[in-house]
Design a binder for these strands. Structure first.
Lengths: 346, 346
DNA sequence: CAGTGATGATAACACGTGTTAGCAAGCGAT
DNA sequence: ATCGCTTGCTAACACGTGTTATCATCACTG
């Protein structure tokens, strides 16, 4: 299996009868270089004939840019369910990057793993920047140091971090979902969180829920709040807890669709009907929530837009050479299906 | 914002009081180089102190290897649903790659897009190899040329291709699912495909279905076969078609969970009950199929293992310098839940 | 006709690393 | 003392590109 050397700029130069410098000038379209149209043509033809492409490594070395950005995922395998919309985020991000001729390096980093491997990506200059998805509190330390030298954008967010970030407005969204249930007449509205409150997103959704109650003049009742943790199983356990109450809620806002799946299963096992006996609203709008029975009313998370926005922020930083001050909060919308009892359609 | 130059091997050499060559020899652990333990120590300390990491681009240039492999996804946004287990595949793959110190470049390539951009990855030597997920018939042409020079492994497969590939045994799996329904006493077993038969996987599952019928001495009835195409909506339409039959099936094998979601919805709308009135078996075992009502009996697709196997094949090729002849077919298993009527559990 | 610019191209350097050939010093043997 | 061999290290080249300073040619001007 003879592996023939791939053509270099030198080969193109030889074929076109010019110097390598000229080839470079032509192919990079250097504007203030005076090249006779005729020679330019000869170079272009030679390059086309040889199917020449500049060596990425050589370019990286001399230009100082790898033209690659990393997408670092801080999710545990437990949360694999929560990855339901990872493909969408990636699609949005890669679309934006492709337009700027950047490539996407995928780098999973389990939360129990030290960040060294990620930092190495930067030290080796393997990437020109990164999107950190699901940043954790411990990450603040190294981010502060490296976010100075390299463009880093957070997907999700981190308290007290100056880094640009993209996220949904969790508080507003949770309040909207809760208000919806209140408006339907429910007075005892429960909450099942998507994760422990140490997670920012979880905490914000909890705040939104409280705010909606307050607006409606209802007291915050600790007994009506149960804690989920990413998985359907955790949702099932949380719902069991709520149903055991002497005076159980008539509606529950579950701050994660996936957690809601488990909750719904438990409700069925108890012989209760949704939404007649218990109304439910979820969060995320994962692709399949429309196909549950009943279809789940939920807060739509604009996953693709999140990816796109993160990409744009990163590009802006790279191009302008300094971090954008903007922090993007994308709006969400309530997708009304049947689980809440305000019955869209059938 | 002064951006200080990151340390080079030259800096390490200066600090340790040796030449750059020595630094390279020590840091790469070249075994037949005679270095006094004391100097080795000095070099290591200097490197540690400066936090030195070799520049990825420079290394790429001189070694001829980028230490990156590409994961090329040939899925349409339509099939975004089918991406349900993409995260798992990626996890398996990236695990294997990480152990070999390789990185993962994600490259979506919609089917309507020309392959040039992907080929460019190889021409620029940006990647050392690639995994092509969901290869399409049109890809044979360029794969034949480039699969000689660069390691390429197929995830899914392609008729008449000599490239190593990883896939599940679709025929066997479909036959198993169909046999299960037959064994439960059903005589009129329908099929809803996951995609048009022009897709290899779809075709093979169709063959498996036929084979199981034949074994049971049942005729193949064209009327009992409807065609889905990736989405729940297509499954809904297909199921409508089957239910309109004068003598509808009592059981249906749906060759995709996601398509089955749509089918199930239609069944409910018709007021029929699963599995009492109509038994259902799916395919893929996407994460959420266990949370449907009723939980879906389905063929488990070992997504993470698929990714892992593809990675291993690729590594083998890269390390040994020639393509492995092996083609891997992973076994599947039937996950019996409740939609088939053989009722696991509750 | 000498001087001045513009035009069109190139030689030479830089980027940061891996690797080969070779050099100096030390040591034992003749 | 000289030769040869080992030990420990380094100078020099290669990888393929972008970029700057320079050079030759020619046209135009005073």
């Amino acid at each position: 299996m003879m592996r023939r050397r791939s053509p270099t700029a030198e080969d193109v130069a030889r074929l076109a009868g010019v110097s390598r410098t000229t080839v470079s000038l032509v192919l990079n379209g250097v504007s203030d270089a005076r090249i006779r149209p005729e020679t330019r043509q000869r170079v272009l033809e030679a390059a086309a004939r040889l199917n020449y492409r500049p060596h990425a490594g050589a370019r990286h070395l001399v230009r100082g840019r790898s033209e690659v950005i990393a997408f670092v995922m801080r999710q545990t395998p437990d949360q694999v369910f929560a990855d339901a919309f990872l493909p969408e985020v990636l699609r949005g991000l890669s679309d934006v990057l492709r337009e700027a001729n950047l490539h996407l390096l995928l780098f999973p980093l389990a939360p129990d793993r030290a960040p060294e491997e990620t930092i190495r990506l930067l030290q080796e200059r393997r990437v020109d920047g990164m999107v950190l998805s699901g940043p954790r509190f411990e990450d603040r330390e190294w981010l502060e140091r490296w976010g100075q030298e390299t463009p880093v954008v957070l997907l999700g967010h981190l308290a007290n971090s100056a880094l640009p970030s993209v996220d949904v407005d969790n508080g507003q969204a949770a309040a909207m979902a809760t208000r919806h249930l209140l408006r339907l007449g429910h007075r005892r509205v429960g909450l099942i969180t998507n994760a422990p409150l140490s997670y920012t997103a979880s905490y914000e959704r909890w705040l939104g829920y409280r705010q909606a109650l307050e607006e409606a003049g209802l007291p915050y009742d600790e007994a009506l709040v149960a804690f989920g943790a990413f998985t359907p199983a955790s949702g099932a356990a949380a719902m069991e807890q709520l149903l055991k109450l002497p005076d159980p809620p008539t509606a529950v806002f579950v701050a994660s669709d996936v957690v809601a799946f488990g909750a719904l299963q438990v409700i069925r096992r108890h012989g209760l009907r949704v939404p007649q006996d218990l109304a439910l609203v979820g969060f995320d709008d994962v692709p399949l929530s429309a196909y549950l029975d009943p279809p789940l009313t939920t807060v739509h998370l604009p996953a693709e837009d999140l990816g796109r926005a993160a990409g744009q922020l990163l590009l802006q930083w790279i191009q302008e050479g300094r971090p954008p001050t903007s922090t993007i909060r994308l709006a969400t919308g309530l997708v009304i299906r049947q689980s809440c009892g305000a019955g869209g359609g059938a």
